[in-house]
Nucleic acid binder design. Structure first.
Lengths: 238, 238
DNA sequence: TCGTGATAATCGTCATACAATCAGCCTGTT
DNA sequence: AACAGGCTGATTGTATGACGATTATCACGA
């Protein structure tokens, strides 16, 4: 059954714009707090303001930018406490995913997960940063697929977006890599044993470790920021 | 400290449009599957298509409408299995909220919750449907406030939106009311005892009961719907 | 130094336009 | 009668340009 379909992937320009902006932000080409002036971005992407604004609306709904009335969109800035909240929720959701996977995944899905993990283990030995993100993301995709809960997957997508932004700095933490692989291995093994509680616990542990690293980094940076005389920010009326 | 602020409730027209549409859908003025033709809605709300489309984008992100390429937006239709997924996630989130409330709520927040529950108990004795929704929503608001996790609250908002749509039919289920109050009472009491596990369990139980009712109703309706041949809508202009 | 007003930059919203696509109808052919 | 194909109208996707409203900037005078 070869795929005869015509390209037809006219993915509606708008989606292209959304993805392009999201990618740009995740890659750090726009940093938290940066203003995204509409006309500039229009020229950059070569689309109309109408369309761009629709895309920005969507990104705001995803929580990766904030649109301040009459000032325009800025890349979202998370406070330490929001970061904690994000990881806390992520822990709950991934715990749930791990448990559901054990309860519901088909044999094929279990196989897929193991394959994804094998690839991940391999990629983490190498040195390419790029590859790692892709591989990790496909590991998560496999985990999500086995949970058989589309709404959970949707929420995890949102949360992972926010985590990606937080991780902008956390990345490339020395020693964290091998630890991370070990944690994921725990998950995979618990799943293999069909031990739902252990899988859930392993998922939660993995997130909480990541959270600990991230939040220690963030608080460093925060204190350093508050020590630096920062340009005064306009009061946001309450 | 009187409030001198000028009205300034220029809540950005766009937000008004979003809220107006959301309310209309929740009230059942548009039903799942209905097409939302852009120009008609424009006239209805007396706003430009530009603005309307931004609002629709946002509603799509919230998951209460779906935009089908080149066919336009329709009110979201959930399958039985999506409904199950929604309640499943809601259970997990509210369980989390209940637990966090016990762990973190201030005395004032605990008091607020009890007040909200008292009002709810009262309102459920009365006969006004309207009031009940408002009161229940403020009960949840109190619960969320004490959890001290803004991201959780955000996700719960999304989920509750979907539940509201599912509940369009589930509502006014006889006997469910007093049961529901009893379940909420369990939550409040567990919280009063500062028993996090019990509070979490009570929250989960409450959602799972609601889920059971909803899904039995839905499956009834589903079988009936598949038996009835759907009618096509006729064009009115002649 | 501090207000204060003028000025520029940017956003919020609108009206309009047009190509691309979809849905239903018509028609001609078999 | 059935059906392929084409025509037409409705609707969406995207672009353009405009204009008032609001915020930010900055120079200027008390």
């Amino acid at each position: 059954m070869t795929n005869l379909r015509v390209i037809r992937s006219m993915v509606s320009l708008k989606k292209q714009v959304v993805e392009s902006l999201r990618a740009a932000i995740f890659e750090g080409r726009f940093k938290p707090g940066d203003r995204l002036v509409e006309r500039e971005i229009c020229e950059l992407l070569d689309v109309s303001r109408t369309l761009l604004r629709e895309a920005l609306s969507q990104l705001e709904a995803e929580g990766i930018i904030r649109i301040i009335p009459h000032r325009g969109p800025i890349v979202a800035v998370y406070t330490v406490e929001e970061a904690r909240a994000i990881y806390e929720l992520r822990a709950a959701l991934e715990e749930m995913a791990g448990r559901l996977f054990v309860e519901r995944a088909t044999d094929k899905e279990r196989k897929d997960l193991e394959v994804a993990f094998a690839e991940l283990k391999l990629a983490y030995k190498g040195r390419q940063q790029r590859n790692r993100l892709a591989v990790k993301s496909s590991f998560y995709a496999a985990l999500c697929a086995g949970a058989h809960n589309p709404v959970l997957v949707e929420m995890l997508r949102l949360i992972h977006g926010r985590v990606t932004m937080l991780r902008a700095k956390t990345l490339a933490q020395p020693g964290r890599l091998s630890l991370s692989v070990a944690e994921l291995k725990d998950i995979v093994q618990a799943i293999k044993r069909r031990d739902a509680d252990a899988a859930a616990a392993a998922c939660r542990r993995h997130v909480m470790n990541a959270s600990a690293v991230a939040s220690s980094l963030m608080s460093d940076e925060e204190s350093e920021a508050s020590a630096t005389p920062k340009r005064s920010r306009a009061a946001q009326g309450r």
